[in-house]
Write a protein that binds this DNA or RNA. Sequence first.
DNA 1: AATAATAAAACAATCGTTTGATTAAATCAA
DNA 2: TTGATTTAATCAAACGATTGTTTTATTATT
Lengths: 219, 219
Amino acid sequence: MSRVKQDEKEKSKQRILNSAIKLFAQKGYDGVGIREICKDANANICMISYFWGGKEGLYKGIIDNLVEKQTQIAKTFVDFEIEPNALNKNEQINLLFKIFDNMVDFMYCNEFSHHIIRVLISAQHERRVELTSPLLVYIRKLIANIFNKDINDKDVTYKFLFLIAQLNSALVMPVFSLGQLKKEHFDKNDMKTIKNNIKLYLNALINEVNKGTKYDKIY
Amino acid sequence: MSRVKQDEKEKSKQRILNSAIKLFAQKGYDGVGIREICKDANANICMISYFWGGKEGLYKGIIDNLVEKQTQIAKTFVDFEIEPNALNKNEQINLLFKIFDNMVDFMYCNEFSHHIIRVLISAQHERRVELTSPLLVYIRKLIANIFNKDINDKDVTYKFLFLIAQLNSALVMPVFSLGQLKKEHFDKNDMKTIKNNIKLYLNALINEVNKGTKYDKIY
DNA sequence: AATAATAAAACAATCGTTTGATTAAATCAA
DNA sequence: TTGATTTAATCAAACGATTGTTTTATTATT
């Protein structure tokens, strides 16, 4: 077991990963070459084939890693084993919002992860990977239960995507450059606003659909 | 003035445009080569340089054309010369929704325009073109007026992007392939749902912000 | 005969990948 | 502990394929 070498290997592997995440996020998969990635990471281009078997393997590795991270975080407050219909409606609604609350946090857990997520949820042409996130599946189940629909119901898809779209608006914001808007990152106050907007929309949605029925306000 | 030749030229130019719009939408700018485009259009690769001076020129031409189209449509019911503050609040709110109502329609006016718009509003790495759509600028002005903010206020940006995100959810939908969701296009009923969601959100937003003040429900 | 649209071929540059050489650390015999 | 050998990480260079663009030739209309 070589220790020093192993460490060096891990270090340069991590450097490439960081550069790749950054550049894929900025320019898209086809927009970056492995030479640019390795130059940014101060590594030799052969290392990508050496570590991941190629450019595509590197990309898949990054996505898988992000989905896995998100799933692990979600597991600290969601039990995927418990089906949503085992919870009462108020619990379902609160859990749904808690998940989105957490997703906003996750998107900004590092400088570039939200770019990758943005690509994942919005860009068809980047879908080189099959996205089977347990968390996203669970969100669909929750929505189906809250609004008394079948999980395959088109309306569930609508509501799901509308909520995802709220996240997307947060993602879009830092990269949107319409006139006055600068490409700066957000502070905690901005995240609070995003969350409030999601909460507002969810409340409006729930009140609209369950007219007459009385539920607690979420949170 | 050659007539037959001129016509042939215009025909093949249009064929390339159609193929380019379709393929750029599907695979992104860097994801398609001009050979693929021209093969799909049944044209020679040199024609792209001949017509647009190159691949980038072709792309810019497509975007400009879409923005121009959208602006023309908007002009039929928005007078860009009239500043939003010349309208009363109810008129402002109704105009804002009417614009979004119309944008939903526009996104589905042809098979692929919504892909391009999606790219425009969400993908940073596709921003090869400066997006200065008069309509988008006018929407910002309207929001600023409705919520009594300066146009440069960050909150205006938030609300603007949240509304754009509603559109984005509509764009995301056909290309989202999470399990049960098929990649089919929407019918008129789906568009109605999108519009209702936007209306719902706008109402919730306006009510939330203008608590105590009484405004007509939009539409 | 002149002109303009299209086709085929060649252009240099870049793509992702692989090869063989080099370096340095780990291992083991002495 | 020392010195030789093995092993693994990294390097520069070259691979063939593909990129967008340009050039030259051909076709058909004016």
